[in-house]
Design a binder for these strands. Structure first.
Lengths: 210, 210
DNA sequence: TAGATTGTTAATCGATTAACAATC
DNA sequence: TAGATTGTTAATCGATTAACAATC
């Protein structure tokens, strides 16, 4: 499906395309041209056509793109329809908020299990899952191989937990801890959600010109 | 302090520099060269020197950079030492997790107040703050002007809450809702934390080559 | 058919990397 | 002093934008 290497800039735009197309579909829009989509997303029509051409030909001359169809194509490109699975490590405040509020299934993921070490949390039911003790992680993953580990443990436990996830064969780590995880050449992908980096960017932007 | 326009790519690296320098300082490292810093961050020495040169001259030939000094300079550039203030909108699971777990003060922010509409939440004390009713937002902001609004309300309330924040004169919005906020030409800065976009990027990366 | 819009090739722009004189 | 390393200028690389033939 993919032609040559796809740049990081393009990859980062794919979820935005998906989100906008979802909104358009919900709003009942059937077709859209690259220039109209670009206008609503703050991109040029050229860029959109260039981006999409990395993956195939989804439009039609003189017509544009069918919204529903393009949305489905992008979902495929993003791997949303592959039935990925995830386990969550660290069912504290943030972990719990993710479990109970974030819709994993809307991104094509099934959250299979959650782990923690804290006795007050182990055994508690959250979002339909009973939190397991973290020392059963390897055992669990051996029986239920999993694509992604969601890392919401405290900073101090982050690297060792990441190592255990990698050793158990996950393909990716969704990292909410504020550290840069070390992950060897094993091909594990790490996606960081660094809250502080985000807030500091905003801090810079509102301070500019001072 | 700033020379000409600073590109977005550079701005996004500043918090990473800050984080790495903090770690180095904690580890007792006193000086570091651009090539050593680059190695540990996965950047080239050239890029680091080029980035820093947007803001001034912080190094010394033959020596490199003093870690403590460079960290402080970057904190200044990021506006961390300006004493920014924030209010939080939406004290549900995610909002509460942020209040109780995220260290606003480490990014130079003081979280001043939190608001919600839900009767079970209004009046509850979280992280030392008593949650106020959202219909007192304007009144509060008039008396206590605030730099940033942290938006952790449900999707349906997001845009109207953003409009109210902007009308009350905030400089920035830290947006955790999964929508692209509309904000006119008023110069308000919006920084998005789109969980789903992040997970979908990871989904793509672990699916690659399928 | 005429108008609209694609996918792609070429041109431009900006960001990263390399090179090097200056100097601690 | 000699070695190391900066800040900056020049070269390269990659991403974005523009142009246009193809065609629905």
């Amino acid at each position: 499906m993919r032609k040559g290497r796809v740049s990081d800039a393009v990859i980062r735009r794919l979820p935005r395309y998906f989100r906008h197309l979802t909104d358009l579909e919900l709003a009942g829009v059937v077709r859209i041209s690259s220039s109209a989509l670009g206008q609503s997303m703050g991109l040029t029509a050229s860029q959109i056509r260039q981006d999409l051409s990395c993956f195939g030909e989804f439009g039609q001359q003189g017509y544009g793109y069918n919204v529903e169809n393009l949305r489905r194509e992008i979902a495929d490109i993003l791997g949303m329809r592959q039935g990925h699975t995830a386990v969550l490590l660290g069912a504290g405040n943030l972990g719990r908020a993710l479990m109970e509020n974030f819709h994993f299934e809307r991104s094509g993921f099934t959250l299979q299990a959650a782990f923690d070490v804290c006795p007050e949390v182990v055994g508690v039911k959250m979002a339909g899952l009973t939190v397991r003790h973290a020392n059963t992680l390897e055992e669990y993953l051996q029986e239920h191989p999993c694509d992604v580990g969601v890392l919401t443990v405290p900073r101090s436990a982050a690297q060792s937990m990441a190592d255990r996830l990698i050793a158990s064969g996950v393909k990716g780590i969704w990292n909410f801890t504020n550290i840069e995880l070390q992950h060897g050449a094993g091909g594990v992908r790490v996606e960081n959600v660094h809250f502080a980096d985000s807030l500091l960017t905003l801090s810079y932007l509102i301070s500019e010109g001072v």
